[in-house]
Computed example of a mutant assay.
Amino acid sequence: MAAFTQQNRTLISSATLSRPRAKFVYWTVLTLVVAVFTLVFLGPLYWMVTGGFKSAQEVLANPPTLFPKHPKASNYSDAWSELKIARLLFNTFYYAFGALLFQLVFDVAAAYAISKLRPVLGNLILGMMLATLMIPAAVLIVPQYMTVLDIPLLHVNLIGTPWAIWLPTVANGFNIFLLKRFFDSIPEDLMAAAKIDGAGPLRTLWSIVLPMSRPILGVVSIFAVVNVWKDFLWPMLVEPDPKNQPINIGINSLSQGVPQNVLIAALAISAVPTLLIFLLFQRNIMSGLTAGSLKG
């Protein structure tokens, strides 16, 4: 049988691209599409960053200016001091990494139990978890608020405490699904070998499963931190004290009487950590999302 080389199938064949005119049209269209999407996604970020360098009058000017006429870097230092950005950033990191800790403990345990321990009605439980992803988050605001206002059986009010932010983030159906799918890709031979050596479920999880699951654990960690960082409505409801609010809510609470340009500078500062997280770990995010999707 004649040997053949496998080629990637694309919308435009390599023979067509070899023609000068087709090659010119292809790269022109590709460049335009990439440029348009870049402007759409980076445009708001550009206006936010440059707006922090403008004066209050220039921010409100109509039509708006593309570049600051007289850049004022002092707007950023004023935003840092007037809006207490350092304190708000500490609060945000505190809430984000607390939520991360709880998610890693409980979501990993749930995914491991469904994937490897295989309890009775495990598939039904997983289906119910995934069904929660179809429910809009706004629909759950009222029942969640009533729950943290008066915890059933315990009758404890969590409003104004970090627990009101941490606990609702624990049961994350999407993270459990990602972890479960990765755990499914771990060979059963390893699990059987660990059982023969006398390792129990917890020892197997700690010594075998978790060391092999670093890519997906990194993705879940990034998602947990970013979700808490960008959340607005829920922290505003459960944490009324501006001193203890995360940065998104704190800037809103402390913005009374603050010039518009200084407020925009504060918003630009608040966006920096999440952008750095994405730029530093984008490869980990993509590799973790695709990890466990193929077996064999």
Rank of each mutant, 00 (worst) to 15 (best):
L89G: 12
S253N: 09
P201W: 15
F97E: 02
N175R: 15
V220W: 14
I176L: 00
T16C: 03
L263H: 05
L217F: 06
V148F: 09
L233Q: 13
V59Q: 03
A268E: 00
S270F: 02
G122C: 08
M1D: 06
F278Y: 14
A109R: 06
G257C: 03
S18D: 03
V59R: 01
N75G: 03
L276Q: 04
L149G: 03
Q103V: 06
F102E: 00
I277F: 12
V33G: 01
L205I: 03
A79L: 11
G122W: 02
I151R: 07
A113Q: 05
K295F: 01
A61Q: 11
F106Q: 11
F232P: 01
G250S: 04
M1P: 12
L158N: 00
Y95L: 12
A271D: 01
V156T: 11
R21V: 13
L42W: 04
H155M: 03
P215L: 10
A110M: 13
L130I: 12
V258C: 09
N175G: 15
L117N: 06
A265K: 06
F37C: 07
L205D: 10
K180I: 04
A265S: 10
R21H: 10
L88E: 06
G288N: 05
L89A: 15
T169K: 14
S185A: 15
K23E: 02
V142N: 10
K243L: 11
I216T: 12
A268C: 01
M146L: 13
M128A: 13
A131E: 04
N75P: 00
F67L: 14
L267Q: 07
P187W: 09
G160E: 03
W80M: 15
T10M: 09
Q282T: 07
T274Q: 10
G296L: 12
S255C: 05
W234P: 08
L101C: 09
G200V: 15
F102Q: 02
T290R: 05
L263G: 02
G200L: 11
L267Y: 00
T10W: 02
V209I: 01
I196K: 10
M146A: 07
T132R: 06
G257T: 02
V139W: 08
W229H: 11
A79D: 08
Y112C: 12
I264F: 02
Q256T: 13
K243W: 00
D150H: 10
I216A: 06
P259H: 06
A3Y: 08
I114R: 10
M212K: 05
S55D: 13
G51N: 02
S115Y: 01
L130N: 10
A22Y: 04
D231G: 08
S55H: 13
A268N: 01
G51T: 09
V219C: 00
M1S: 12
L178A: 11
Q260T: 14
S55L: 13
I165E: 00
T65F: 05
F90M: 14
A56N: 14
N75W: 08
P152D: 04
R283C: 08
P143K: 11
N261G: 05
G257V: 04
L83H: 04
Y145E: 07
S14G: 10
V40W: 05
L121D: 03
M286Y: 04
M134H: 12
M128W: 08
N244K: 14
A56S: 15
V258T: 15
A3V: 10
L133A: 06
I176E: 03
V29Q: 07
M286K: 07
